[in-house]
């Protein structure tokens, strides 16, 4: 049986949090899809609130605490990432961005990502596409086409058979992520932190010898 590892990052601040609720729904749907395809899935979830001080300290000192280090390692070496943030003042939360900022800019290359967000009203749903998606594009992650935004009202809306209800969007996004996770080999890659750039010479190139 194939094995795949998914990281889930939830940047919700309150407890209980609707951001965490959405993250759990997305995770359950993705795991179900993969299990149905015969893929064994391991899920590692982090609530950024639990490492908020560690993230700030990393910004200040340049290195992660042991606890944050294991979170970074898990996210960087996953086969898929489910990233969910509340939308604050038109964008992802500061804590979410701070976490992204302590990652190595190369660390998320080729990583399949499902982006989700929560907010008070539907009016902020485009933040996923003008803020969250470009962020992961810049990091060379592979963001699935369907991003899932849950406004407060969505949690009480009926499944009306249209393609736009929250459960339907969750299913669609989970299907897209599951497909990419199944094909990912990121979690079994051996990474060489000392790989020199192609063509590197310790005495230099042009004329320097």
């Amino acid at each position: 049986m194939q094995k795949r590892r998914i990281s889930v990052v939830s940047a919700g601040l309150s407890q209980p949090s609707s951001t965490r609720l959405l993250a759990d729904r997305l995770t359950d749907a993705t795991v179900r899809r993969l299990t149905e395809s015969g893929v064994e899935v391991e899920v590692e979830l982090v609530e950024l609130r639990d490492v908020a001080k560690d993230v700030t300290n990393n910004l200040l000192t340049g290195f992660p605490s042991p606890r944050l280090s294991s979170v970074i390692e898990a996210v960087s070496t996953a086969d898929g990432l489910i990233a969910v943030t509340p939308i604050f003042t038109t964008s992802y939360s500061g804590l979410f961005k701070s976490f992204i900022d302590v990652l190595d800019p190369q660390a998320l290359g080729d990583l399949p990502v499902l982006i989700g967000a929560t907010g008070g009203t539907e009016r902020h749903s485009l933040a996923l596409d003008y803020a969250m998606r470009p962020l992961f594009n810049y990091l060379h992650a592979v963001v699935v086409p369907t991003a899932v935004y849950a406004a407060s009202g969505d949690w009480g809306a009926a499944e009306n058979g249209s393609s736009s209800s929250l459960p339907d969007r969750i299913e669609r996004a989970a299907g897209e992520l599951a497909m990419l996770v199944e094909g990912s080999e990121r979690s079994s890659l051996v990474r060489d932190p000392f790989a020199l750039p192609a063509g590197f010479s310790p005495v230099g190139g042009f004329g320097a010898q």
């Binding site: 700030t56 300290n57 200040l60 000192t61 290195f63 605490s65 042991p66």
Partner: peptide
Amino acid sequence: VYGHGPSLEDFTEQ
């Protein structure tokens, strides 16, 4: 370099 971040205790440990 490290002020206002981790505690002295954490930093000396790490």
